[in-house]
Simulated assay, not measured.
Amino acid sequence: MRIVVLGAGGIGGTIGARLHLAGHEVGLIARGAHGEALRDHGLTFVTPEERVTLPIATYARPAAVAWRPDDVLVLATKSQDTEAAARQVVAAAGPDLPVVSAQNGVANEPALTRWFERVHGMCVMLPAEHLEPGVVVAHGSPTPGILDVGRFPDGSDDVDAALAEALRSARFESEPRGDIMRWKYRKLVNNLGNAVQALAGERLDGREAGEALDLLVGEAEAVFAAAGIDPVTQAEDDVRRADHLRLRPIDGAERGGGSTWQSLARGSGVETDYLNGEIAHLGRLHGVAAPANARIQTLMAEAAARGAGPGTMTPAELLALLRR
């Protein structure tokens, strides 16, 4: 099995790097300055233990890959890029290619079934950063992350088993799960604070930030109940994480913010429409108001449009806006 990763940022780059270091055949698809740096110089992969440059085969677009019957695609783009990526991949590789969504949110898997016969979900818990071209930083140690996989909409198959085995050999925690979307819905709830962190700073342990997060999560739970969605419980998620996700500083520096914080820092697009926006969307479909999630979705879109960096308001200012 060759594993081709489309989107070699923090998540995709770490997955590709760890699999490559474990001896697996890997290909990366990356665009822009980052893709150019990977093709010209290799992937600089930084962890608490080492800094290495890896000569991983990198392609500018799916059409440049000589696709094989044993390929599996791990899609690690932001959710707003899923449709464009899917159209390019299906044109190059066909609809029988197994596609694994290693993305936040829950909208990617149903979207991918428009083009692909075999769609899989991956629940990603992986603390990584991508802030400069050619460089990916992974703070998790000794386990870099938890990457459980399963078929969409449910079940698991030989692709899940083989991919999980490969990921375990690369030091990840990974298990095939027949109910992967229940785990991804819980991850969605845990991602609702990404926008709080990005707009109001790096930490969520202050009183006002905590109250803002409580507003967002409370709306999500009400929406899920109305929609008949049954995520795994927070207690189940805590057990799965256990003590696997330990973050260690690199060169004395702690990890910065999460993926949305990093997107604002890089000046790239944010995926809040598929996180807090998913709650607003489900609320509208099922007649449950979710004004705080809709409001923070708008605030994030405005911040991204004007090129604002992270931390443009205080937690108290954000909380006041969400309570309006």
Rank of each mutant, 00 (worst) to 15 (best):
G7W: 01
G7N: 07
A8Q: 09
T14M: 04
I15L: 14
R18Q: 15
R18F: 08
A22C: 12
R31P: 11
L38I: 04
L43E: 06
L43S: 06
E49M: 15
R51Y: 04
V52E: 03
L54S: 15
A64Q: 13
A64G: 12
R68L: 15
T77L: 07
T82A: 04
V100T: 12
H120T: 06
L126H: 14
E129F: 04
H139F: 15
G140W: 07
T143R: 10
G150M: 03
R151K: 12
D158P: 04
V159W: 08
D160R: 01
A164C: 09
S174K: 07
G178K: 04
I180F: 08
I180Q: 07
V189E: 07
L192S: 00
G193Y: 01
N194Q: 11
V196M: 02
R203P: 10
L204D: 09
E211H: 09
A226E: 11
P231Y: 11
D237P: 00
D237G: 07
D243K: 01
L245W: 03
A253Y: 00
G257T: 03
S259M: 00
R266F: 05
T272D: 05
L275Y: 01
N276I: 03
A280H: 09
A280D: 10
A290R: 02
G309P: 02
T312R: 06
M313P: 00
E317W: 05
L318D: 05
L319W: 02
